[in-house]
Design a binder for these strands. Structure first.
Lengths: 233, 233
DNA sequence: TTTTAGTTTAAATTTACCTTAAATCGCCGG
DNA sequence: CCGGCGATTTAAGGTAAATTTAAACTAAAA
C-alpha cells in the first residue's frame, strides 16, 4: 500500500513516514502541496495524508484538485479547530481528519480503517453472487428485482439497495451511518431520520407485522440488522 | 491514571511531576532507567515519559525492555535532534516524542492524547476479536448479541457494552469510574450510582444467584471485576 | 454501634425510534 | 420552459424503551 504524506514540518513528516513504514506501508513524503501533486500524478497512491497549512499549495486546494480526478481516500491533519470545521463545511470529500497533536496509534488506526474500507469497496464481495436468498426473501441482482414468497416487491431504488446490502451481510449489526454510507455512498449529508424513514418504508413492504418485524430488527442504540430466521426476540 | 517519569535532572523531574499532579494524574518519579524499571515491574503504570539520556539504563534500552512485555504508551524527551532521529530510526515503538525545551501545555496535551487513545481500546495490537467467551457467557460482537448457556440475553445497550468491556479484560479490577469512562465515554458527568444500578441489572440477567455472583465480583472499596471461573471469593 | 459502601427497586426522565404527512427534488413529456 | 409525477427528504407528534434519580435497605468495616 502506497501512502502519500504532504506535510511541511520536517520532524512531523519524518515521524509519520517512519511510523507508517514500520507498519509495512510504502511512504511518499512531500514537503508541500505542489510536490504532493506531482507524486499523485506519477505514482499509484492508495491513501493521502494532507496537512491543511502548507506552502505552495495548501491542503484544501490540493484536495479539490485530487477530487477532480479520483476518489483517493484522504486524511486531513490540522492544528486549529477552525480548520477542522472548514474541512467539514466545504464538503470537499475528506474521508477523515485528525487534530494535532495526535498519537501515532491513532493515525495508524485511521489509516488502516480507510484502507480497509476502500479495499472492501474496491473488491465488493466474492465473484458476484447474482442472487440472494433469505427466508422468504429472494433477490435477482441481474434483474434488480426483489421477491417475497415468490411475489414481486415494488421497491424504490434506495429501498432496494438497502435490502441488498442487508442481505449480503445478514446477522451483522450496522449503525444508521454505516447503512447510509453503504447505500448513499457518502456521509456528508447524513441524517438519522432519512435512514429511519427508509427502513420504515421497507418494513411496510416486506414485514407482515411491522410491530414485530421478522426480517429487519432494530438494535436500540446501535442500528439495524437482518435477523436470524426463526431466532427469538 | 499513573504516570512514570524517568528523568535524571532533578529540576525538570520535579517540574514535570508537579504539573502533572496538578492535572490529576498520579506520578511515579525515577531518577534513572534502572529505578524506572523497578517501578514498572511493581506498579500499574498507564504511561511513561522517558528522557533519552540517563545514567544506569538509558531511555532506548529501557524502552526496548518495556516493549518486550507490554504496549505501555511511551513519550520520549530529548534535547538533541540527533537523538530524535535515533528514536524514530530504531523503530522501537515510541508513541510520541518531545524536544527540549518544551512547554508544559504541550506535554500535557500529548499525555492526554496518548491516554485517551490507549483508553479507547486497551489492546490496540490485538486484531479485534469478533467473539468473546467466558464460562457460559458468549458474545458475538458482529451481531451484537450475548448468550448465556446458548440462550440469547436481552441486554440494553449499556449493559451490553459493560459486559463486553469486562469480558475483554477479565480478571482485572476496574473502579466504577473506569467502567463509566469505558462505557459512557470520558466526558459525561459521572455518578457512582449509575454504574451500580447497571451492574445490578446486568447481574440480574446473567447471575443465577445475585447474592453470590459467579461472574461479576464486587471488590469492596475498589470496584468490580469479571471473576475467575470456579475461583473462590 | 456507627459509619461507610454497595444493592435493589420503583418512579421520573430522557432518549431513540416509528409513523405519517407534507415539502422538496429531479426527471420526463408536452 | 412548464407541469406533473415518483422518489426522497424533512418535519412533527406519538410511543416505548433505556437510563437516571432517588430512596429504602443490607452488608461490611471501623
Amino acid at each position: 500500500m502506497n501512502i502519500l504524506i504532504a506535510e511541511d514540518e520536517k520532524d512531523i513528516r519524518n515521524l509519520l513516514a517512519i511510523s507508517l513504514e514500520e507498519k509495512g506501508y510504502t511512504v511518499f513524503p512531500a514537503k508541500n502541496g505542489a510536490a504532493a501533486w506531482e507524486i499523485i500524478k506519477t505514482q499509484e497512491i492508495h491513501l493521502a495524508i494532507l496537512d491543511v497549512m502548507m506552502p505552495e499549495l495548501d491542503g484544501f486546494n490540493l484536495l479539490r484538485r485530487i477530487r477532480e480526478v479520483s476518489t483517493l481516500p484522504v486524511i486531513f491533519l490540522t492544528a486549529r479547530t477552525e480548520d477542522m470545521d472548514k474541512v467539514l463545511g466545504l464538503g470537499l470529500g475528506a474521508d477523515d481528519y485528525l487534530a494535532k497533536p495526535f498519537s501515532m496509534n491513532e493515525l495508524a488506526a485511521r489509516v488502516a480503517a480507510q484502507l480497509r474500507r476502500n479495499h472492501e469497496y474496491l473488491n465488493p464481495k466474492e465473484p458476484e453472487t447474482l442472487s440472494l436468498q433469505y427466508g422468504e426473501l429472494y433477490i435477482d441482482k441481474k434483474a434488480c428485482c426483489a421477491y417475497l414468497s415468490g411475489r414481486l416487491l415494488e421497491l424504490n431504488p434506495k429501498e432496494y439497495k438497502l435490502l441488498v446490502f442487508l442481505m449480503e451481510n445478514p446477522e451483522r449489526v450496522f449503525t444508521k451511518k454505516q447503512l447510509y454510507n453503504a447505500v448513499w455512498g457518502d456521509d456528508y449529508f447524513y441524517d438519522d431520520n432519512t435512514i429511519m424513514v427508509h427502513i420504515s418504508h421497507l418494513r411496510n413492504k416486506i414485514e407482515g407485522d411491522t410491530q414485530s418485524p421478522e426480517y429487519i430488527k432494530t438494535i436500540r442504540g446501535l442500528g439495524y440488522k437482518l435477523h436470524k430466521i426463526g431466532g427469538s426476540r
